[in-house]
């Protein structure tokens, strides 16, 4: 089982003349926390959308566990066990917190014709959804309308919802942005525990310090191309990264 979980080869996505992602290749190894870094507009979220099937690549391949997934519909990719969050939180605002997770937990059934008469309130499904909420620390708020939660709780809800889908790979799009320091620490611990359970995590992160501390490896993108790849220490030392992303050498140490 040494084959990488996700293999990305020569991936490109062009919007008209804009090369949002341009010939990027990298692997995600099983059980690692891989960080995707880069300045605004570097193509990180486009990469996510390509992996989760929102966009079809202009060129290149994505293989998940040996199976080509580029060109598959988003719900099919989710069905393979790839769960994701969104940079701008997108809860189902008119559903309760629990229903948000249950909607994602229905994954096993949605692939077939919907089981009209199976009640989603049945105990097993509900228990699993509640345990996910407990894990992210939202079980007390299970019956609240999701739209009424503050940002920090919404980020947790998105992680719970993505976990309901993610049997193997969890994609986190800036799960720390807009959060307070304590909240960041809690979510860092949560992500580590998720990895400890055997999941693989790919995360987009803006906050260098968080990314360096949390990730096993980092990929740095700039203008749609891969600028650097390696362990946090290697990336931090890379001249190209320092220039493109961190500014000049002096400020790199400050960050």
């Amino acid at each position: 089982m040494n084959r990488p979980l996700l293999e990305i080869t020569g991936l490109s996505k062009h919007f008209g003349g804009l090369r949002a992602v341009d010939g990027v290749s990298f692997d995600i190894r099983r059980g690692e926390i891989l960080g995707l870094l880069g300045p605004n507009g570097a193509g990180k979220t486009v990469c996510f959308n390509l992996i989760s099937g929102v966009y079809k690549p202009t060129a290149g391949q994505i293989s998940f566990d040996g199976q080509r997934t580029d060109g598959l519909a988003p719900h099919v990719i989710a069905g393979l066990g790839i769960g994701r969050t969104f940079q701008i939180v997108k809860p189902f605002a008119h559903l309760t917190v629990l229903e948000n997770v249950l909607a994602a937990r229905g994954i096993a059934h949605y692939r077939h014709l919907p089981k009209i008469w199976s009640s989603w309130k049945t105990s097993a499904e509900r228990r699993e959804a509640l345990s996910l909420l407990e894990r992210v620390g939202l079980s007390e708020l299970a019956d609240r309308l999701a739209g009424l939660l503050p940002l920090g709780n919404l980020r947790r809800l998105e992680i719970a919802r993505a976990l309901a889908v993610a049997r193997t790979l969890l994609l986190l799009d800036e799960s720390f942005s807009g959060l307070r320091h304590e909240e960041i620490t809690q979510i860092e611990a949560l992500i580590r525990s998720i990895r400890a359970d055997g999941l693989t995590v790919l995360l987009i992160e803006h906050n260098m310090r968080v990314a360096m501390g949390l990730c096993d490896r980092l990929i740095v993108l700039d203008h749609g191309r891969k600028l650097a790849e390696g362990r946090p220490a290697e990336v931090r030392a890379s001249e190209a990264v320092i220039e493109a992303y961190l500014g000049r050498k002096g400020s790199a140490h400050a960050a």
Partner: peptide
């Protein structure tokens, strides 16, 4: 029902519903 939950989810945001399978 599960179908109803999926209907309510999709009616709020189809793209997110898709990402949830």
């Amino acid at each position: 029902t599960e179908l109803g939950l999926a209907m309510r989810a999709a009616s709020q945001d189809m793209a997110v519903a898709d990402a949830m399978g």
